[in-house]
Write a protein that binds this DNA or RNA. Structure first.
Lengths: 131, 131
DNA sequence: AGATAATGATACCATAAATGTATCATTAGT
DNA sequence: ACTAATGATACATTTATGGTATCATTATCT
């Protein structure tokens, strides 16, 4: 059971690294070797973070990525959402295997509550607090 | 991202059903159709719960499963552990991709805390409270 | 005793998700 | 022009999930 997958974890590490370096531009190559993350995989991850506006990209020779202005305030919840999509701790109440008792289901109430708790915790952890 | 997988979910439903019926013996066949769970899959699940001592099994014609004495006090945490093994919300700090900063890692602290919270919540939900 | 209907144990299979690679195009600095 | 970086995207590999199938064993019923 994984709440945080590897790409999310790598993304967080990379973001912390970026945040620590301030506005300095870092290439995927350098970051991959310093963080021991497979280079092409990290590249894909950083590209995604760039698309989401958390990083700024500099193309061409001497280029790389740097943190955008929104980086410090970015939360773990944001990152999890980017890489893992909408998060539901269980599909107990959704889709084809939905619980028949739906409305009266006590399990659902507990799961929903737990989901809220987890989400709130993740929303309260910002990159700037991790560096 | 799933904290509770389908087999765990099915197991909880089945256990609630068992608990509701008191000590009555129910066959996989009946339970599968009443809960709309694929019969062989449910069977595997109930066998596992039996091995763990949560259910009692009656072989032979007219047989089936019934809740053991420990059933009512069984927690969601117990069930999750049985079907999903040791739960770690992230492998940030373990194995080959372990965070280099290990001891000083602030992310680890947050994740560990969250893990504790989730575990405690699950430990406080008993089958008897769900029926 | 024999037919039947249940579980015990276990191996197998199919699909999806996670993890990672590869490649071609584009851009910028030298 | 050459080189070194990202952009975009398709592909490949591995692992976890979800589910099936089968043969052996046991208990009941006639």
């Amino acid at each position: 059971m994984k709440l945080i997958t590897r790409d999310t974890d790598y993304a967080i590490r990379a973001l912390c690294c970026m945040a620590a370096k301030g506005g300095e531009v870092i290439s995927v190559k350098d970051m991959a070797s310093s963080l021991s993350i497979p280079r092409p995989f990290l590249r894909k991850i950083l590209q995604k973070l760039h698309k989401e506006g958390i990083l700024t990209a500099m193309k061409g020779k001497g280029g790389g990525f740097k943190g955008s202005s929104s980086l410090p305030e970015t939360t773990l919840f944001n990152v999890v959402m980017i890489f893992q999509g909408d998060f539901s701790l269980s599909d107990h109440t959704s889709g084809k295997i939905a619980c028949p008792g739906m409305n009266s289901c006590k399990l659902k109430i507990h799961i929903d509550g737990l989901e809220q708790t987890v989400a709130n915790r993740l929303k309260n952890i910002r990159i700037k607090e991790l560096v």
